[in-house]
Amino acid sequence: MAHFLTRVLKALCESPLRILLLFFVVLFRSCQYVCVRVLRAERRKSVSGETVLITGASRGIGRCLALEFAKHGADTIVLWGRDEEKLSSVKKEVEDIGTSRCHYYRCDVGDREQVYRTIQKVQEDVGTITILVNNAGVVHGGTLLETKDDKIEETLRVNTLSHFWTTKSVLPSMLARGRGHVVGIASTLGLFALPGVSDYVTSKFSLVGFYESLAAELREQGHRDVGVTCVCPGHTTTDMFKDLTTQPFSLTPQQVAEQTIEAVKTNQRRVILPRVMHLTWILKSWLPGSWMRNVLYVTGAMKDMDNFCAKR
């Protein structure tokens, strides 16, 4: 620490202007961000006319996303999932809204070759994808020592690695056309951990890192027209965490879908839902570990996953 401050002090004397500049840039950027958000003055883009691919669209958040994109006038919506019956009923719902064409494909995103094959087929059938929403996910639940090895591997394959495969397949055409958006549905469990779902937490943390790196990469390469959004929703009332009992700030999948589309339109890179969850993240980063544990005990979050696992 002392060593560092010494060096900073030295640097300050050597190049005070540069450090000052950094502070100003950081300050300016922060103010700019706050003003833009408060005044709602972001540059907005429209999703009408886009071709949207949504993975895990058979139910829950994915289904709501499909309907919401249809309401906002997306041209074509492609649904992925494993349950064809459910997919076809979602397709009907989308078509009832009346503005979009809709296709669905059976695809297990945990299988890399299948992802590549299906993407190929999609591109032949409907053309290039301009918005990719990586949403499919699984959760098993159980303490680390209780979780089976193949479940751990499956969680990582479906929740994390699938995002690499789908993104790798659609990104080249987005970059070539200078238009596109990649959306990942991570989770607030990608920002702070809870005991009892270590494989899920690991997979969601990884996603947060992945989208941060991807955003940095596109930015450095100068592709400002291809957006990246990482959505971190808290507890949502879908099948996935329906066994979780004590959740004060539950979201509906509809809310998540609306906020996600809003984020795409305003090109936000990180969205934490509900907004108060941002506080939990700040607490986690600022408090020493033992304090944070007390917070979790007091709020009952420590027990959440137990109830969840017990019910499964």
């Binding site: 005991p195 990884s206 992945f210």
Partner: peptide, 29 residues
């Protein structure tokens, strides 16, 4: 922190960080 050229590395290390945090809670518990 994510970074340029670190898509897979950063993602894997974020994962390790999350895993460790979970493990810490589970052991304490």
């Amino acid at each position: 922190y994510g970074g340029v050229g670190l898509c897979d590395y950063s993602a894997s290390k974020f994962g390790a960080v999350g895993f460790e945090e979970c493990l810490r809670y589970e052991i304490r518990r």
